[in-house]
Design a protein around this nucleic acid. Structure first.
Lengths: 221, 221, 221, 221
DNA sequence: GATGAATGAGGCTTCATTCAT
DNA sequence: CATGAATGAAGCCTCATTCAT
């Protein structure tokens, strides 16, 4: 009698399990980790904090993840994967390159509203520890995101819609950077972001900045 | 009995001493801290690492700085102060707003070539730990830099040189962010940066991107 | 309703079950434990290691044994019981005391060839942890073995075959000790023990040493 | 001004410092470790126990020793070094080979009276953990001791004083083993060892056993 | 000033053991 | 019987910080 759906292979500590089959508590731990890392920072929190936030026993974290760092990796991996998937969907969707790049910006700001904690982890912690961006899955995922965006830039340039001469990689990095720092000052409340309208406005500002740059259309300079 | 010339006010742990009178080893510690923080990150290094790199006993670090965090603050303070001073000099110098903003970008990339470690500290660690940007001198310094740049944007807008409608703060953040991420991919070698010429080219790309944005001047879109 | 043949008394955790009726997996666990304890030592292995080696889930170990220590006790008990039974058989068999003691030595070395892991457990772990020989079943079993051998010595002394004046207990301990250390250097490969012949020779050396001592028959001393 | 005697090189965690210059507390820790390991066994004690017994702070143990295992190694090393030195002195001293071997046995038993804790560590813990005798300094030291004793046996055989035909290594191992097990039963109080006289008697028994073996001089067998 | 021995709290990690299925 | 997810106490080790010299 095949115990099909319930068949659960060995916990496979740290390997990404089939989402449909993923133990509920493993997910709880990952969700809690996002919140806790976002709140107190990777170095500022203890595994115990994550476990408590997840409502599980201390040791269970180590049942599912090799150690604290592996947990962080996993969190990054998942968050970036989500982001990357969305960016890909936009990149492969309809619209001109400029429209799609604008879409990426808008999406990013929207996520901030929906899941600020996740964004903070991505923004404040990802890639910020030396040797984090420099190696491993994170770097790879980051490069992929960069590549997808650079690809859009390239398309736009080929279509004559975007300015030629710009290195697509530099452009992509600039876009992500501008995006990130803008989100950061939103997160840090350097910019008024209380109301829906304010965030909406900030969103268009970012889009505008990245697409049109600073200079006035018919600048005297 | 006045020990006139040697009269050194109480070590003034952690206060910035008169540069001319600053003990050589205090300076050595600060320099070492920049390198070590850049190399291994604040949390990834021990006071002993800094002391060793400075060639002093680690007790001495505590002679000059209240604790590890105070040392970090001081490092940030100095690095940002240098950056801020340069940005201010450019901001108050000659040229149109656009030219001066371009100057800031060029200066930043140049610093990277001269002192990559210092830049990495600024880029990777500053403001990236939750509660670090959110409070303290760092945030203040960051806001100042943001303000100076936003000021230039405002001037440019007033002069009709830069596009009105853009929030100067968002623009400033975008500029810093684009700058940072571009530098980051340079640092991470995602962009070829071996030769002088390559770095020079990257520099102009960044300037270009920030000032003109992505869209072609007479885009068909 | 008597479940006659299948009637298995409550698992009787840890009690030695009727050998004929012993669950196969219980035996597998015990066998695995001998190997694993021998390989990594009691403290150096986890219950999970034993379970894995036995090919069962580690929960099952607790089905059959109260805890890790009880498992160790059981392993010792079985190994020593086997050894003790053999020694007893020899002791009660034919031959002079000297011949029988020689038989014990020969048997011991032979076991090493057959089941080196089991010997290592006996040699390296038994009784070596403070409080292990000092109390519990192990000590008792050890004392029994000592007693049986001392008995043979006593018989030999009574028969005038073995030197009087020697404390039988000291003699028994000396014999076991010499045996153990000799086996140890075999196990550790301090002595060439690759070939059958070499082991055979070592065996006779040990017998010789214990029975005749070091001094030459008509020593000048 | 040369600070000759006080000149203390870097702590050299774990390296054997010049005895004359060894920090008092380092010595205290080593002494305490011998006692505590002997009392509760390596696995049965915590670093905190050692620190408390030594009257120092927890962390100081790690100032002088890399970790718990390194501390154990050091303890073994020192104890074996002392034993080895004594054995060497006896081996190189006057007397026939038999007399000197007897001297080794007597010395060993005497040490037990003087420093039972140290002996227990040597007896019960040394070489008893798998992979302890098998590698590292311990094995080497053990082999040396074995070699020195085997050397005496060889001399005795050459002089016709000891029985030829015996493998010196087996003989040395047998001697050490008999010695150890005899000491063990003394330590474990399987043999009455309360009074001075009893221990003295046991000592001669061991000497007798090892030198003359079990068999009666003119055994009927 | 300078040194590094000494301190001890904090936190990660392990792993024996329990228990629901 | 069998499984392995879940628990949590225990203990090793790190490292910021203090202090006597």
């Amino acid at each position: 009698m095949p115990r099909a759906r319930t068949a659960r292979r060995a916990p496979a500590r740290d390997a990404a399990p089939d989402p449909l089959d993923e133990p509920e508590k493993r997910r709880a731990i990952l969700h809690a980790a996002v919140r806790v890392f976002a709140e107190k920072g990777y170095h500022g929190c203890r595994i115990a904090d994550v476990a408590r936030a997840a409502g599980v026993a201390y040791g269970l974290v180590y049942h599912y993840f090799r150690n604290k760092e592996a947990l962080l990796e996993k969190v990054f991996e998942e968050q970036w994967a989500l982001f990357l998937a969305a960016v890909r969907a936009i990149a492969e969707g309809p619209g001109s390159a400029g429209e799609r790049l604008a879409g990426v910006c808008r999406f990013s700001v929207d996520v901030l509203k929906t899941a600020p904690a996740a964004v903070r982890v991505l923004m404040l912690e990802v890639a910020r520890t030396p040797n984090s961006l420099r190696a491993g899955t994170n770097r790879q995922t980051f490069e992929e995101a960069l590549g997808v965006i650079a690809g859009m830039v390239r398309e736009g340039q080929a279509a004559g819609e975007l300015r030629a001469g710009l290195d697509p990689l530099v452009a992509a990095a600039g876009l992500l950077g501008a995006l990130e720092m803008s989100l950061t000052i939103l997160v840090l409340d350097l910019l008024p972001s209380g109301s829906e309208a304010e965030v909406e406005r900030a969103k268009e500002q970012v889009v505008d900045l990245v697409l049109h740059g600073l200079r006035a259309a018919r600048s005297p300079g």
